[in-house]
Amino acid sequence: MADEFMKGLALFALGGLGWITFGAWYRTPSYYEVVQLVNAPEGVNTVYGEIGVLVGDVLYWLMILGPLTFWILIPISRELRGSIGDDAAN
């Protein structure tokens, strides 16, 4: 159980740090504005800029779905599999 927690935590940390990094590069027009990291990308007119925006979005979803998978979905599936196995034994 501890290794699932660490895997989820690692995906959360890596996804969050990557999302903050790419968000700062492509989504923050000014550090004095209230809304940062969630703005629409501005001035992205190269292939590398588009790849950077895409990687930032992928890292955001990795930050959300990685811990959700390892902290909630995998333990629930193990519990369901165990309860189904217990019902078949009776």
Rank of each mutant, 00 (worst) to 15 (best):
A2Q: 10
N39H: 13
N90F: 11
V53M: 08
G16I: 04
G66R: 06
V47M: 09
V55S: 09
F5P: 00
I84R: 15
L65W: 04
I72H: 00
K7M: 10
G43C: 07
G43H: 05
N45K: 09
W71E: 02
G49Q: 03
E42C: 06
G15L: 06
L80T: 02
I74N: 09
G85Y: 09
F12A: 13
L68I: 09
L80M: 06
S77Y: 08
G23Q: 01
A13Q: 07
P75E: 08
I74W: 05
S30C: 11
D87R: 15
Y26M: 02
G66V: 08
E42Y: 07
S30N: 14
S83I: 03
F12E: 06
L11A: 10
F12V: 01
E42M: 10
A2G: 05
E4N: 07
L65A: 10
Y48G: 12
Y26I: 02
E33L: 11
Y60I: 05
G43D: 06
T28K: 12
Y60L: 15
W71A: 04
A24I: 07
S83F: 05
R78I: 05
T28L: 12
E50W: 14
G85T: 13
V58D: 01
A89G: 03
V34L: 15
G16S: 11
N45T: 11
D87W: 14
V47E: 08
T21W: 14
Y26K: 02
G43T: 04
K7V: 08
L9M: 11
G16E: 04
D57I: 05
E50K: 15
W71Y: 09
V47W: 12
F12R: 01
E79G: 07
L62P: 02
M6F: 14
Y26Q: 01
L62F: 10
V38I: 11
S83K: 07
V58F: 11
Y26G: 01
A40D: 07
K7Y: 07
I84N: 14
I64Q: 07
I64T: 08
L65S: 07
P67Y: 00
G52N: 08
M6V: 11
A88E: 15
W19N: 13
A88N: 12
L59D: 00
L80A: 05
F12H: 07
T46M: 06
P29Y: 10
I84F: 14
D3E: 02
F70Y: 14
Y32N: 05
L68H: 03
G15K: 01
S77E: 11
L62N: 05
G56Y: 01
R81N: 13
L17M: 15
A13I: 15
E50S: 14
T69A: 05
M6Q: 09
D86E: 15
L80S: 02
